[in-house]
Amino acid sequence: MLTNTLRVQVAGVLLALAAFAVVIELVRRRRLTEWQSIVWLAAAVAIGTFAVYRRLQFALAEVVGIYYPPVLILAAFVFGGLLILLLQSVALTRLEERNRRLAQDVALLRERLDRLEASRKVLPDAEDEP
């Protein structure tokens, strides 16, 4: 029978490996750019590291002054998650902005096209009012 400690370690490593595989697969299918994937790969590595080196959390908790070490991991992931959300919001705003510019350009170009097509008509009678 495995000890509890070992079970947690195995579960953590499996989770990290699964996360790693999913991210790599997404990049391979071009559903995620290499740049975005780095953040998620880093997260997977962090999970794996904390799972394998259990003493790491105790050492870090002492440095920061946290009494109950597991809270450190939880807090780190919550803050990391929030940071990623903020970056996503920034990216979304930039996309919105570009989207708006594109829509405006479409409207302006369409108008120019209308005008060009109208001016290229040879006979004034050819205007097609239904």
């Binding site: 829509a103 405006q104 479409v106 409207a107 369409r110």
Partner: peptide, 18 residues
């Protein structure tokens, strides 16, 4: 009149700027 058609509802601000 000249007509500027936005491809979707982009809001008053975007329409005005167009």
């Amino acid at each position: 009149a000249a007509l500027l058609q936005l491809p979707f509802n982009a809001g008053v601000a975007a329409a005005e700027q167009t």
